[in-house]
Simulated scan of single mutants.
Amino acid sequence: MRYFGQYESPLGLITIQCDELGITGIWFETHTTRPEDLGTQEQDFPLLQQAKGQLEQYFARQRHEFTVPLSLYGTVFQRQVWRALMSIPFGETRSYQDLAEQIGNPKAVRAVGSANGRNPISVLIPCHRVVGKNGQLSGYAGGVERKQALLELEGVLPLSK
């Protein structure tokens, strides 16, 4: 059984989804998510409330790590990449090449990029901390402007005017 709720973040509406064990998805309103895949709307489900609270703290610059449990659904390779993403500290970035090397597969840069793009749990699994080798902000399912805003919030980039 899956449940979902919504949270109005400083960067727009976020949909949070969970099962009985953990968070399964966090999507900005620009993501394409089929409503029939979300489950039952239940704003007060404890895991959804915990995730919302931690996101509120994050956006208020009071939280640098998330402790809400996650339920990862993906291929073995995708889950490996997502776990590597979770090891990138708040306020730091890595390149796709760095991640490929971290998982012991330095030639898998494109596959790492693909797995990064399929990350269903935005912000908590910080795919926004991955940048091009030259530091360029590239692709983000929530939009590059949100990626920039998240990196600004974390102090990686100077605040834009």
Rank of each mutant, 00 (worst) to 15 (best):
M86C: 08
Q6L: 10
G113A: 07
L55T: 01
S160H: 07
P158G: 06
V131Q: 00
E92P: 08
D19V: 00
A84N: 03
A100F: 11
L150Y: 05
F90E: 03
L48K: 05
T75S: 06
S95H: 08
L150N: 10
N116A: 10
Q78E: 08
K161N: 15
Q57D: 15
E20Q: 15
I103N: 05
Q54W: 08
V130C: 09
V123N: 08
S138F: 15
N119T: 03
T40A: 14
I23S: 01
L99Q: 03
T15D: 07
H31S: 04
K133L: 15
K133C: 13
L150C: 04
S95F: 00
L124T: 10
V112W: 04
E92M: 11
F77R: 07
N105E: 06
L55G: 07
G132S: 13
K133G: 10
I26F: 00
I23C: 01
V131G: 06
F77H: 05
G155F: 05
T30P: 06
T40Q: 15
N119W: 02
I23D: 08
L159Q: 12
D19A: 04
F66D: 02
S114G: 13
G104V: 00
Q49M: 15
F28R: 05
L72F: 06
E36C: 14
E29F: 02
E8A: 13
G39F: 06
G5S: 04
R94M: 12
Q41W: 11
L47A: 05
G117I: 07
